[in-house]
């Protein structure tokens, strides 16, 4: 294949990556932005979404599209409820102390991962795509489902944006983010808001996983990479900034495809991980974040 078509293919793959990554990372960013805590178990909610999607589609058993649509509703909902429950039983009692929350969410990470290992088992299992149409360019054929993933991610991200910018819920979230005590004084039930945000963040990760699982497979250890990449995206995009997060996700997702043309995947990961560390050390507000005085 010539370079041009090859680049097109790499860009398409990069765009799918970016779309899923943006959804996952926005979930992490939303939680950090509102609650000022880092959810290390975020990748496990992603994994939970994928595994639940496998279960739901297998259980429903009708046409793949029916199972998929059910999974798209059930998996994020279940992941969200589990996350909200974890928030109410654990994080709330820790008073959202940043360091304790990290330690506790590491614990939650292992609990979710290992419970899935005990129930779902160690195998990677595929989920059938809701439709299997392919379209053809002059050089290669490409799965239409991947374009659908990009479209869905854009729609969902617009939904999150609208929720934050246009609705009363968004207003409450932003108020809580700005000043927790003031929000409480104005009668906002901060604890309930936190539980909802924590659940919403997990639901977004699970939603991303449902979208990607027909392309990848569901496996109990699949949460590691999305967690790492989301970290990278959220930190580079500026902690807690939704717009920055999306921009960084596109940047990382697109360049991931292109970088891996030049480097081995391991070297690419090494560079990306070091980049995060150095951004945190030398530009703690993110590459695109504003410097505070």
């Amino acid at each position: 294949m010539d370079f041009g078509p090859y680049l097109l293919l790499a860009s398409l793959e990069g765009a799918v990556q970016s779309a899923v990554l943006a959804l996952t990372a926005v979930g992490l960013s939303l939680v950090f932005g509102t609650m000022r805590v880092v959810n290390v178990a975020h990748g496990e909610f992603f994994m939970l979404g994928a595994v639940l999607a496998w279960w739901v589609t297998t259980f429903v058993g009708l046409h793949p599209a029916v199972g998929f649509i059910v999974a798209l509703v059930v998996a994020p909902l279940a992941a969200g409820v589990i996350a909200a429950a974890a928030d109410l039983t654990v994080l709330k009692r820790l008073k959202y102390d940043p360091e304790s929350t990290i330690v506790a969410t590491i614990g939650i990470l292992y609990i979710i991962q290992q419970v899935v290992l005990m129930t779902y088992g160690p195998d990677a299992r595929p989920v059938q795509a809701p439709f299997s149409h392919r379209f053809y360019t002059p050089w290669f054929g490409y799965s239409s489902y991947k374009l659908f993933v990009i479209g869905m991610a854009i729609l969902l991200l617009l939904g999150v944006w609208a929720l934050m910018a246009k609705t009363r819920i968004g207003l409450i979230l932003r108020a809580t983010q700005l000043d927790r005590e003031m929000a409480q004084a104005f009668g906002i039930p901060v604890e309930r808001v936190y539980a909802i945000v924590f659940g919403l963040g997990a639901a977004l990760a699970a939603m991303a996983a449902v979208l990607i699982v027909p392309i990848q497979q569901a496996h109990y250890l699949m949460g590691g990479d999305p967690l790492l990449l989301s970290f990278i995206v959220v930190i580079i995009g500026g902690l807690g900034s939704l717009m920055g997060t999306v921009v960084a996700a596109v940047l990382i997702g697109m360049s991931d495809g292109i970088i891996s043309v030049f480097f081995t995947p391991t070297l690419a990961k090494i560079l990306a991980t070091l980049l995060v560390a150095f951004v945190l050390i030398f530009r703690p507000n993110g590459l695109f974040g504003k410097r505070s005085s």
Binding site: L94, V103, G107, L109, Y110, Q114, V115, L117, M118
Partner: peptide, 21 residues
């Protein structure tokens, strides 16, 4: 008993942060 032994590490972490700092 189980290959999912890290479950206990996870439970221990959560319980320790909650009840026995």
């Amino acid at each position: 008993l189980t290959s999912a032994y890290m479950l206990f590490a996870g439970v221990a972490l959560v319980l320790l942060t909650l009840f026995a700092r």
